[in-house]
Amino acid sequence: MTVLKTGGRYRSQVCDTEVIVVRAPSAESDLCCGGTPMVRLEDGQPTASNSGPAEGWDGGSLLGKRYTDADGTLEVLVTRPGNGSLGIGDTPLEVKRAKPLPASD
């Protein structure tokens, strides 16, 4: 587990996915992609095997989409898409939906 910081850049160890943290939780978190913890982009090359995402974690990530947890305490922006799904530990992240605009009558 690591303390995620707003503006931090992370990459997957099992696919091409890269993200930037837009909103970080106050507690330590285990940001994962493809079922494997992500590493900081500055740390160089991925260390896990390139066997691909784990089963159930292979839904992919979409370029330019924001992903968030159910509580809204974490939000990441995908800067490079890949085959792995994003999550916090064993909990998958969801694509953030746009807020509806107020009706103008």
Rank of each mutant, 00 (worst) to 15 (best):
V3H: 14
D30T: 06
T79C: 08
L101E: 13
P37T: 05
G59K: 11
V21Q: 01
L4V: 05
T6K: 15
R11P: 05
M1H: 13
E18M: 14
Y10T: 00
K65G: 00
G82F: 04
S51I: 12
V76P: 04
T68K: 10
G72K: 11
E94K: 08
N50E: 14
G72M: 11
V3I: 14
R9E: 15
V39D: 12
S49Y: 09
V19G: 03
S85M: 06
C15Q: 07
R23D: 05
T2W: 08
V3C: 09
D71I: 03
E42N: 09
S26H: 08
R66E: 09
G87V: 01
L74W: 00
A103K: 14
S104T: 15
E28T: 03
R66A: 01
L101H: 14
L93C: 02
L93H: 03
R11M: 15
N50C: 13
M38E: 08
L93S: 02
E75G: 03
G84N: 05
G59T: 11
E55I: 09
A27W: 01
L101C: 11
C32D: 04
S12Q: 14
E28A: 06
T79Y: 00
T17M: 12
M38L: 10
S51F: 12
I20W: 01
P53A: 14
T6F: 03
T91Q: 07
G56Y: 11
D43V: 07
V3Y: 11
V39N: 07
G59A: 11
T17C: 14
R40L: 13
R23Y: 03
Q13A: 15
T47Y: 03
G34W: 05
D105Q: 13
D30I: 04
C15P: 06
P25L: 03
N50M: 13
A54Y: 07
W57R: 00
V78P: 00
G34Q: 08
G72I: 11
L62T: 15
C32V: 11
P102L: 14
E94Y: 07
V22A: 02
V21E: 01
T2V: 12
G84I: 08
V39K: 07
S104D: 13
G52V: 13
G52L: 12
G59C: 09
D69R: 02
K65D: 05
N83Y: 04
Q45Y: 06
G64F: 04
V19L: 08
R9Y: 09
W57G: 00
G7I: 06
L31H: 03
N50K: 15
A27R: 07
L77D: 02
T36K: 11
W57I: 02
D105E: 13
S29L: 06
G8D: 10
P102I: 13
S104N: 13
K99V: 12
E42W: 07
P25V: 04
P53K: 07
T73P: 04
I88A: 00
G44W: 07
G34Y: 06
K96V: 04
E18R: 15
D30Y: 00
A98E: 12
G59Q: 11
K99Y: 10
K96R: 12
L63F: 14
V21S: 01
G56C: 10
T68W: 02
